[in-house]
Amino acid sequence: MAGTSSGIVAGLTAAAVGTVGFLAYQASANVPPGLGGKSGASASPSAVVSRAPRDRGHPGALPTGSGKGERVVYSVDDDRVWLVDDHNRVQRGFGVRPGSVDPPVGLYWVTSRSHTATGTDGVPVEHVVRFTSVDGVAIGFSAAVGAGADTTMDVKTGGIRERREDGDAMWRFATIGVPVVVIR
């Protein structure tokens, strides 16, 4: 009887591992058609949780373990963004100023865009590229138009602010469905 029980457990374990592998494969597949993403846009979920060391000698270098293919990479610890083409070449890298609410580390997709809007801090912004929300606060990239207001700590903001020229580049690059990889 013991041999039969261990065989059943081994079979169930193998089935569970196969199911998890299949789900991981599906999660790394192309952007769902309903999002209207670019064909072939994908990123590896396993790369998102990678904590491979970065080359601190080159702060502009794309961190290893940040995925593959076309994507936006955002480091919450370094306050830096990289726009990466489908050949894993950095098209542009730049520093940003985050809001008071950070997105969790993970894999997201650009879900909405607005040419102009007003940030939760009352500052007019342009080229808003949103990819998630945290506790009801929209998280996305944007560029302030004109002089920015002083943000009070009482206001929860999810705007990751860019310089206007970086915002223009983000707007051209990050269309609906493009993956956004958030790393530490």
Rank of each mutant, 00 (worst) to 15 (best):
residue 39 S to P: 08
residue 117 A to D: 10
residue 89 R to D: 10
residue 47 A to D: 12
residue 113 R to L: 06
residue 112 S to F: 15
residue 118 T to Q: 02
residue 163 R to E: 12
residue 36 G to D: 07
residue 38 K to V: 13
residue 24 A to K: 14
residue 73 V to L: 03
residue 82 W to N: 01
residue 180 V to F: 04
residue 91 Q to I: 09
residue 51 R to A: 11
residue 16 A to T: 10
residue 24 A to Y: 07
residue 7 G to A: 05
residue 8 I to F: 13
residue 84 V to M: 13
residue 69 G to C: 14
residue 7 G to V: 11
residue 19 T to A: 11
residue 13 T to C: 12
residue 14 A to L: 01
residue 131 F to S: 03
residue 48 V to I: 01
residue 46 S to E: 04
residue 74 Y to F: 13
residue 132 T to S: 02
residue 150 D to M: 10
residue 182 V to K: 00
residue 109 W to C: 12
residue 184 R to K: 09
residue 137 V to D: 15
residue 149 A to Y: 13
residue 39 S to C: 14
residue 95 G to M: 15
residue 141 F to V: 01
residue 87 H to V: 06
residue 7 G to Q: 10
residue 144 A to T: 11
residue 151 T to V: 11
residue 42 S to G: 10
residue 147 A to K: 05
residue 169 A to S: 09
residue 125 V to N: 02
residue 24 A to M: 00
residue 83 L to M: 06
residue 114 S to Y: 14
residue 128 V to D: 14
residue 84 V to Q: 01
residue 171 W to H: 11
residue 149 A to G: 06
residue 57 G to N: 04
residue 57 G to R: 03
residue 85 D to C: 15
residue 25 Y to P: 03
residue 6 S to M: 08
residue 90 V to D: 02
residue 73 V to H: 03
residue 148 G to E: 02
residue 84 V to T: 06
residue 24 A to I: 05
residue 10 A to E: 02
residue 160 I to P: 02
residue 101 V to W: 06
residue 177 G to F: 02
residue 95 G to C: 08
residue 17 V to P: 13
residue 151 T to R: 05
residue 47 A to R: 05
residue 9 V to K: 00
residue 81 V to W: 00
residue 6 S to K: 13
residue 74 Y to I: 04
residue 166 D to M: 13
residue 41 A to S: 10
residue 180 V to W: 05
residue 39 S to Y: 11
residue 93 G to M: 05
residue 93 G to W: 14
residue 62 L to M: 03
residue 1 M to D: 08
residue 70 E to T: 14
residue 85 D to M: 04
residue 163 R to Y: 09
residue 87 H to W: 04
residue 116 T to Y: 12
residue 33 P to Q: 10
residue 134 V to E: 03
residue 2 A to N: 11
residue 74 Y to E: 05
residue 172 R to D: 11
residue 121 D to A: 05
residue 66 S to W: 14
residue 145 V to G: 05
residue 40 G to I: 07
residue 182 V to H: 01
residue 93 G to R: 04
residue 49 V to Q: 00
residue 3 G to H: 09
residue 63 P to S: 13
residue 178 V to Y: 12
residue 88 N to F: 09
residue 148 G to V: 06
residue 54 R to D: 14
residue 81 V to S: 01
residue 147 A to D: 07
residue 124 P to V: 00
residue 95 G to R: 09
residue 74 Y to G: 01
residue 34 G to F: 15
residue 85 D to T: 03
residue 76 V to E: 07
residue 177 G to W: 12
residue 28 S to D: 14
residue 72 V to T: 11
residue 100 S to F: 08
